[in-house]
């Protein structure tokens, strides 16, 4: 496919084809058809982002300051940052490991089963949000069927300090969309494992363990690592589920920012919200950059 694209681009560069007039005026003219898109992006994406980045460096008197960012890592905000990171790491780890096992087991089932699982995963991974929160409240809440069932079996879920509305509870609920997301993204990597590799390894004298260690892990590791990073970013920025479950009381970065957006802003915290939002973007950019680098430098090419 790529050579077809290359040929097409070549043809265009030589000025062949009916669309060559578009380029005759040079780079600026060739931007003209992109104006609607660029205008849309400019107004609805670049403008708001530039706005919060600018405001995050301003104090209440519109003077430049770094104080807002210093506040981000202190007190309740610093604590929420840690809680958010921890929650995201744990839920990404559980999601990645469990999802990888499930994806591996599903590989061996029939095509229709695999398609049903893929469809289910895409629903669970994407439509989490508010319904997911209530589903868990219904099943694991104090009056939930699962809670009652476990109690009947002798395990009082609420006997200790557990509540669904704590960081641990939210981590548990996040797994409900983290695992399907892993299954969804990791399955194609598993499908790309050629049966010939296993057979070649066997016929060359390799044991199942050598195959796993020398071939399967090196091939799959980049996909596993990059997907884990994606899961981290996903949990880190999740808002709807946590808010619906805890009404915004848990010290999580997104919930704190949400409270600040929602109004009730104490005057001197106005720009702190912007700084927090920028920090969130910063963490996300770092994680996604590593994600892109892992994929680029992985030896396995499609």
């Amino acid at each position: 496919m790529s050579h077809v694209v290359a040929e097409r681009t070549n043809a265009l560069n030589k000025g062949a084809g009916p669309l060559s007039y578009i380029r005759r005026g040079g780079a600026l003219v060739s931007l003209l058809p992109l104006i609607p898109f660029l205008a849309f992006i400019g107004y609805f994406l670049a403008f708001p982002l530039a706005f919060i980045v600018r405001d995050s460096f301003l104090d209440n008197d519109k003077h430049f300051t770094l104080h807002n960012f210093a506040l981000c890592f202190q007190g309740v905000y610093g604590h929420s940052f840690l809680v958010s990171v921890r929650l995201s790491v744990i839920s990404a780890f559980i999601g990645a490991v469990a999802g990888a096992f499930i994806a591996h087991s599903i590989m061996r089932t029939g095509q229709r089963t695999r398609r049903a699982v893929a469809a289910t995963s895409s629903v669970l991974a994407n439509t989490g949000g508010v319904p997911l929160a209530f589903m868990f409240i219904a099943s694991f809440g104090a009056q939930g069927l699962v809670t009652k069932l476990l109690k009947f079996l002798g395990w009082d879920l609420y006997g200790g300090s557990f509540t669904l509305f704590s960081a641990a509870g939210v981590t548990f609920v996040y797994c409900f969309f983290q695992i399907p997301l892993m299954v969804l993204i990791f399955s194609p990597a598993l499908e790309n494992m050629k049966p010939e590799w296993r057979e070649a390894s066997d016929s060359l004298g390799g044991t199942p363990f050598t195959y796993f260690r020398r071939i399967a892990i090196p091939v799959l590791f980049p996909a596993f690592l990059s997907t884990s990073l994606l899961l981290f970013a996903n949990a880190f920025s999740a808002y709807a589920t946590a808010r619906a479950m805890t009404s915004g009381t848990l010290p999580l970065m997104p919930l704190l920012i949400g409270n600040l957006v929602d109004g009730n802003v104490i005057a001197n915290e106005k720009h702190l919200g912007h700084a927090l939002a920028v920090c969130m973007i910063g963490v996300s950019v770092i994680v996604m950059t590593i994600y892109a680098l892992v994929l680029r430098y992985s030896k396995v090419k499609k």
Binding site: F44, L49, I52, D55, Y239, V261, G273, A277, V278, M280
Partner: peptide, 18 residues
Amino acid sequence: VPLVVPVISYAMGVATAM
């Protein structure tokens, strides 16, 4: 770009910018 901007940050930006 929208993939790396958490929706919550985007919401903040939109709410203050427009």
